[in-house]
Design a binder for these strands. Structure first.
Lengths: 248, 248
DNA sequence: ACAAAAGTGTTAGAAGTACACCCATGT
DNA sequence: ACATGGGTGTACTTCTAACACTTTTGT
């Protein structure tokens, strides 16, 4: 404790967010195309540390704004959407991760597949490409600025990990969904097929889904729609969620 | 992205550490006293935000120092010891958690029981009370400054949680230990008794301990000493450990 | 000899995995 | 009718918990 103030020493605080969603291949075919993939939006840097490279959406932390609020703002600015799930990922602060000293508090968020598709289609229709923002398949990322490649890798690891013991996968789905939808989300996250029979039994052993009386009719036998049974969180998001996440 | 610099807006970055160890009740009786408890050191605040209250050891982040290095420094200043285990806990940044705007990146550390006992005894013998530092039982904490009570609670939750699926508990033990030592560490963390027979089988199913030829002789049948089988981490400490933890 | 911890064996139940099979719908 | 995904049944394996029992020391 040599210094007593700690101010004005050139350390700045940024907030970035790894925004994840699930998207079907062909960008469309509302119902079933091929296997869905994890996708995320990146921003092309125009200024010089790593100008031209792609980076996570983010910005400087405002003095009157909470950390999670800043992440939510980032998300809204990039996608115009509210998160289905938002959790702090990690604080990155290696001395050499940027030419100037920057501490990045990184969040990760899940977005509902349907809203994202809708949003993307709307933009495409309007012909407007949101400035310098593009969506990438998580398995085919471009050159990334700073340590953002490591950050994304860690976020994906966390997602896979958390899918194993919580209900995060529902963050990709609309309020009502079939068990096949849910299973597909898990399969996409985990990268392997799950037995439909066992999956069904496992999820309803948790008693967290309640069946509705609605069915999704499609090309075959109709599937029952389910929705969340509780107001309980999809997963524990940290020490002070959900309060911190309240951005209002 | 309204601002482009983010500098000089009054946001400061602090690093605090929840330093946990396991201690036997009577402060002594090297061998077995009563059940061990989780204990941690706190620092009495002398300056005014919460002057007089107890707080986590910590300080301002230095511009040329990594986050984990700052945590390790904190630990050394408070206990004179190096961590058995060090991991980032969370970044706390609520706007109202301090009168001024402070982002606290909090780490948690485990210390070897034997070294801590040794260190404490040495200090006690020398009659020197390290200035304003005192150790508290985790179940009997004093009034805490800021949001530090929540932080400690979260650290203990994380410890319990991680004990369930990793080998963190070894962070409390010296390099060689008996299975009873290890089981006692888990019992202390989890707060419940474990079956010695099943515990034995579970740990050697993981193949992470190698038996030595040494035995600890005591009041009863001698117990074999074990040590870590691998150089593998006790648990995954985050996206960039162990590099980040290297403080040299 | 006896107390007590070290260490082994056995069994019952829970949970996870694989897969055969029936059901209901669109074509 | 038949292909296909929705949904049920069942056997098998693996994990877990409980606890009886044997071994080895100090006293």
């Amino acid at each position: 404790m040599t210094r007593s103030t700690g101010s004005e020493d050139g350390i700045r605080v940024a907030v970035s967010t790894v925004i994840l969603t699930m998207r079907r291949d062909g960008t469309l075919r509302q119902s079933q195309g091929s296997a869905p993939r994890i996708a995320l939006p990146l921003v092309r840097r125009t200024r010089d540390p790593h100008a031209g490279a792609w980076a996570l959406p983010g910005g400087w932390l405002d003095a009157h704004e909470g950390l999670a609020a800043a992440a939510a703002r980032t998300l809204a600015e990039t996608t115009g959407l509210a998160p289905s799930y938002l959790e702090q990922l990690y604080a990155f602060g290696a001395v050499d991760r940027s030419p100037s000293r920057v501490i990045s508090v990184v969040y990760w968020a899940l977005l509902r597949e349907d809203l994202v598709d809708q949003q993307l289609a709307a933009h495409r229709a309007a012909g407007e490409e949101i400035e310098n923002v593009a969506w990438f398949d998580a398995s085919a990322l471009p050159d990334l600025a700073f340590d953002h490649a490591d950050i994304i890798e860690y976020a994906l690891w966390r997602l896979r990990n958390k899918a194993g013991y919580s209900r995060v996968a529902q963050g990709f789905l609309p309020p009502e969904f079939t068990l096949a939808d849910l299973r597909e989300a898990y399969e996409t996250i985990l990268g392997r097929r799950l037995d439909p029979a066992n999956f069904r039994r496992q999820v309803d052993a948790t008693r967290t889904l309640i069946p509705t009386n609605a069915f999704r009719t499609g090309s075959h036998r109709p599937a029952r729609l389910y929705r969340d049974a509780t107001d309980v969180e999809l997963a524990d998001r940290g020490p002070l969620a959900p309060e911190e996440t309240r951005t209002s």
